[in-house]
Write a protein that binds this DNA or RNA. Structure first.
Lengths: 240, 240
DNA sequence: CGATAGTTTGATATCCTTCAAAACCTGTGG
DNA sequence: CCACAGGTTTTGAAGGATATCAAACTATCG
């Protein structure tokens, strides 16, 4: 299978075969992990950069009283924390939402790449800047939209991001996220998430079966969500 | 007055006088601006990096139907978007919450600093990483806490951040944020913000007069907010 | 000193939560 | 290959936090 990070970065700028080969070599150390395991825990000292090759993960924080907030989804092609070595301790955890294959990239390889590969370096900066833009958009989502729009908006974003790495097939993608997870990302109870998903299905906006999510009419879902993909900065891509 | 950026960065690592002088020279082009003006608008092509020297600003986004979400506060010492030149267009705006003095730093000066001043470069990376951590914590705040805790948490954060740049005097700081602004940052109506502020005052947690906010008992406010300053990564500082 | 922006108050509506239980999957082990 | 276990989804009823609307009050600034 082709490297999902390369696929993603090509949405920013073209890469040479040489660049792509460098990215492949980054993934020398790929391992399989089971769902629900933590890749890093809150308080850990960061030792490597993780690259998700297959499966889904999330950043999350647990409050003292047990409430959980998910702050990002990581899908294939996503790196976590290119710069992380500057900080002494993780202020949040990264956990797996599904079984996954994950590459661990040591600091020195990362530094070397940034120093010797300006095109790739720029593309990686682009990807961290858009990660941040996604975070900002999630804040808008929770802060301003009601439950129905919130879920719709998140699904639109995931559709675009998975499209970038070629993981949307026939308008559908694998969706290993429980309604409880959705609640913890959107600041809603699982019960209410359930009712809103029913409404989305009822209105023909999504179909959900056996862990795959189908969006029959993407523009329609985008319009109910007031989704505007600008924040993903896909200038160099057909998806926009 | 001493450069607030230098003050801030010293919470990460000690700086030499030489380093501080470099930072001072960055602020060659400082201008006064009036409250409510935008420093940059959504869709603009970024041309300079802004450094807030005096006053407050915020990042915000306006939805098509007029709802506004504030996604960050910028206080003295805060830079916006060190890396911004990689992106073609701003996906959000930066507006002033008060009259302010702002330095505009051209791209080449910024690049030069990163290439010739490794200590400062590391400190600036630290500051952008903590900006991101703040954004994540805001998501936790809106997603998981109720209105009362949300406001309390935000005020604790501002207390710490302003303390870092020496702007807390006698337990109080200037607070030019309207209740409407607060509503737009916390996903609440101004009416409800008003009632929660009354409750905070009623319980003796804050005092608010003539645009200054006093926190008589910081640990107590932190405890009602479940505030834990870890996410600000103040390892090298007394504030923690 | 008037105009404008910001704060405060009250009454009513609603979205979302809470609690509790039933139904439904999915994977695992016998 | 079936049966069971645990997690996940679904349903219903009732309560609570926050929104909405509208108006009065109070600062602030030119």
């Amino acid at each position: 299978m082709t490297n999902p990070l390369a696929a993603k970065l090509r949405n920013f700028a073209p890469l040479t075969d040489d660049d792509a080969a460098v990215l492949d070599r980054l993934c020398a150390d790929v391992r399989g992990h089971r769902a629900k395991r933590d890749l890093i825990k809150q308080g850990d000292r960061p030792e490597v950069v993780f690259l998700l090759v297959e499966g889904w993960a999330c950043r999350y924080k647990i409050l003292p009283d047990g409430r959980r907030q998910i702050m990002a989804y990581l899908v294939p092609g996503d790196l976590c924390d290119v710069q992380i070595f500057i900080l002494k301790r993780m202020d949040h955890a990264i956990g797996l939402l599904s079984n996954a294959r994950v590459a661990a990239i040591p600091e020195n390889k990362m530094v070397e790449l940034f120093e010797t590969r300006p095109t790739l370096a720029r593309a990686l900066w682009w990807s961290t800047l858009t990660d941040e833009a996604v975070l900002r958009e999630w804040l808008v989502n929770i802060g301003q939209r009601d439950a129905f729009e919130r879920i719709a908006h998140l699904l639109c974003e995931l559709w675009v991001r998975l499209k970038m790495v070629g993981m949307v097939k026939g308008g559908a993608f694998a969706f290993p996220v429980t309604q409880s997870d959705l609640g913890d990302t959107l600041g809603l109870t699982p019960v209410h998430v359930n009712r809103m998903l029913q409404r989305l299905r009822g209105e023909g906006l999504i179909e959900l079966k056996q862990g795959r999510l189908l969006i029959p009419d993407v523009p329609r879902l985008m319009s109910v969500a007031q989704f505007d993909s600008n924040y993903l900065h896909l200038d160099g891509s057909e998806i926009g």
